[in-house]
Nucleic acid binder design. Structure first.
Length: 299
DNA sequence: CTTCGTTCCTGTACGC
DNA sequence: TGCGTACAGGAACGAA
């Protein structure tokens, strides 16, 4: 599941293999992949064809390749999306690997005849769209695709404002994990990094946002940055010229996770079995001792 | 207005 | 063996 570090690995791969190249043709093989492009797959293809893609940018889990001065190809990988670059030695007119073919959703070919760009997505939660760039409400001088203007800066951006985050957090009436997953408050954090960061900061996922102290908030943000930086280092090493990213499950998931997916296994700090709670139709993992559950009426 | 539950989708893992 | 069900999960959407 791509969260910020995985998306950044993809972004840097696109910078290396796709930036500066001109789109010759676009095939949309599954219309759901462009469902967020309001004018339909044909318009998506038409707007992209002939355009020279520029250096890709990223905010949170979104990435986009600007073109033509005021537009961009915007991508979200969802749960299972991959952007893969074909082998330059394999002509683009050859069929792709049959194992990929099943979930190939969109294919871009380039005027230089080199490796094509494939959007492969098993569970189809990801999407591509062409969108106009608008001034960023969070940082002067930046532009962002219109469709994601509500997405807050991620904690690795200069534009991330810790003081504003604290103010907005305190104004909310919800649990800290819900807030971390709210991309309009802080972006790039998904279920895995939320649990990992809360474990590092020794905070329970249900702690009320309106009662968090400045120190606790700082600790969470620092923890998010740490765990993301570590993941980025791990993800950055497993890179292959055939692919923009290697398959999302290798490398990254072997990384040391302290709580995520470790139900009933000993906490790496205190040895207490990690607990799994149902949370928003999925799971929240925590250490019952390091992250004491807030008592009703308190915190 | 804010908050929260539901929904989209497919493949894997498991219990009976 | 085979069937049914739970689970994985980002974020748009609608209900309360």
């Amino acid at each position: 599941m791509p969260e910020l570090p995985e998306v950044e690995v993809v972004r840097s791969g696109l910078e290396k293999w796709v930036a500066g190249r001109t789109v010759e043709s676009v095939e949309v093989l599954h219309s759901r992949a462009t469902r967020r492009h309001g004018e339909g797959p044909a318009d998506f293809a038409a707007r992209l064809t002939g355009q020279r893609l520029e250096v890709p940018r990223r905010r949170g889990k979104y990435l986009w390749l600007p073109f033509g001065g005021d537009a961009a190809l915007l991508a979200h990988l969802g749960m299972s999306g991959q952007l893969l670059v074909g082998d330059a030695e394999l002509p683009s007119d050859q069929p792709v690997d049959p194992a990929q073919l099943k979930h190939l959703r969109v294919r871009l070919r380039f005027a230089d005849g080199g490796g094509d760009l494939r959007f492969v997505d098993q569970r189809t939660f990801g999407h591509l769209m062409v969108d106009d760039l608008v001034p960023d409400a969070f940082a002067e001088g930046l532009t962002v695709p219109e469709a994601i203007k509500h997405i807050a800066p991620d904690p690795l951006e200069d534009a991330f404002d810790g003081e504003a985050f604290f103010r907005r957090l305190r104004a909310k009436h919800t649990g800290i994990k819900r807030a971390l997953l709210d991309q309009s408050l802080i972006s790039g954090v998904g279920n895995i990094y939320a649990d990992e960061a809360l474990w590092r900061a020794k905070l329970h996922w249900a702690r009320r946002t309106e009662a968090l102290t400045r120190a606790e908030t700082t600790a969470v943000i620092d923890a998010v940055r740490e765990v993301m930086a570590e993941a980025l280092r791990a993800g950055g090493t497993s890179f292959d010229s055939l692919y923009v990213n290697v398959n999302g499950e290798s490398g990254y998931f072997d990384r040391s996770l302290n709580v995520y997916g470790r139900a009933d296994q000993p906490c790496n700090r205190c040895g207490t079995p990690i607990r799994r709670d149902p949370f928003m139709n999925r799971s929240a993992y925590s250490c019952p001792v390091c992250q004491p559950r807030p008592r009703h009426g308190h915190y």
